[in-house]
Simulated assay, not measured.
Amino acid sequence: MAGRTTAPRNTSTSGVSSAQARDITRDLLSRGNPVPGREEDVLTAVSELIANARQHAGGVSGFQVAALPGAVLVEVSDSSPEPPVTRPWAPTQPGGFGWRLVNQLADKVTVTVHDGGKTIAVTYTGHG
């Protein structure tokens, strides 16, 4: 697809780790970042989405990050058809911040349920 630079998609059942996904994302951003100043937002989302898939959905079945004109798209797939849930705000309790943080930092978040589970797509633009 013209104008799209895509990192390798990981389809192993054991999945990609947060560190591996961040490295793939950093590499992509270093080759022409369409969202300057938002690198940490993108990397935070990558970490949180991978961690959530591993902790709550049986692991990562797919990971992709793409540089588009003026945007970065992150997609994480897992085998659970259950959409993520925003937990009630409880600052004294461990956990429960990742999904809320992804939604607060991203310009667009979509959850698509499919036969193999679900894919969460997060978009960051240069206008965040």
Results as ranks from 00 to 15, higher is better:
1 M>W: 06
1 M>C: 09
2 A>L: 15
2 A>W: 09
5 T>E: 09
5 T>D: 13
5 T>K: 14
6 T>A: 11
6 T>S: 05
7 A>R: 09
8 P>K: 10
8 P>W: 05
9 R>I: 13
10 N>F: 10
12 S>I: 14
12 S>A: 08
12 S>W: 13
13 T>N: 14
15 G>E: 07
16 V>C: 02
18 S>M: 08
18 S>K: 12
20 Q>A: 00
22 R>H: 08
24 I>N: 15
24 I>D: 15
25 T>K: 11
26 R>M: 06
26 R>N: 06
27 D>A: 02
28 L>R: 08
30 S>P: 00
30 S>N: 00
30 S>E: 03
30 S>D: 05
30 S>Q: 04
33 N>G: 02
34 P>M: 00
34 P>V: 00
35 V>H: 02
37 G>P: 03
39 E>K: 13
39 E>R: 12
39 E>G: 06
44 T>V: 08
44 T>E: 02
46 V>Q: 00
46 V>W: 00
47 S>K: 09
48 E>R: 05
50 I>N: 06
50 I>R: 04
51 A>H: 03
52 N>S: 07
52 N>F: 06
54 R>P: 06
55 Q>F: 04
56 H>E: 11
56 H>C: 03
56 H>F: 01
57 A>V: 04
59 G>R: 02
59 G>S: 04
60 V>E: 00
61 S>G: 09
62 G>R: 09
63 F>D: 03
63 F>L: 14
64 Q>F: 08
66 A>H: 06
66 A>N: 03
67 A>V: 14
67 A>W: 07
68 L>K: 02
69 P>G: 05
70 G>E: 04
71 A>K: 10
71 A>E: 09
73 L>M: 10
75 E>H: 12
76 V>D: 03
77 S>H: 08
78 D>M: 02
78 D>S: 09
78 D>K: 05
78 D>V: 03
80 S>R: 08
80 S>C: 09
81 P>H: 01
82 E>M: 12
82 E>H: 12
85 V>E: 14
85 V>M: 11
86 T>W: 04
87 R>P: 02
87 R>V: 15
87 R>I: 14
89 W>L: 11
90 A>C: 08
90 A>G: 15
90 A>Y: 12
91 P>A: 05
91 P>K: 07
94 P>E: 10
94 P>Q: 13
94 P>A: 11
95 G>R: 13
95 G>E: 06
98 G>H: 04
98 G>N: 05
99 W>L: 02
99 W>T: 15
100 R>P: 01
101 L>P: 15
101 L>S: 14
105 L>K: 01
105 L>G: 01
105 L>N: 03
107 D>S: 03
107 D>R: 03
107 D>Q: 07
107 D>A: 02
108 K>V: 15
108 K>F: 00
109 V>Q: 07
109 V>A: 05
114 H>L: 05
114 H>Y: 02
115 D>A: 09
115 D>G: 11
117 G>A: 02
117 G>K: 00
119 T>A: 10
120 I>V: 10
123 T>E: 07
124 Y>S: 01
124 Y>K: 09
126 G>D: 08
126 G>P: 12
128 G>A: 12
128 G>C: 04
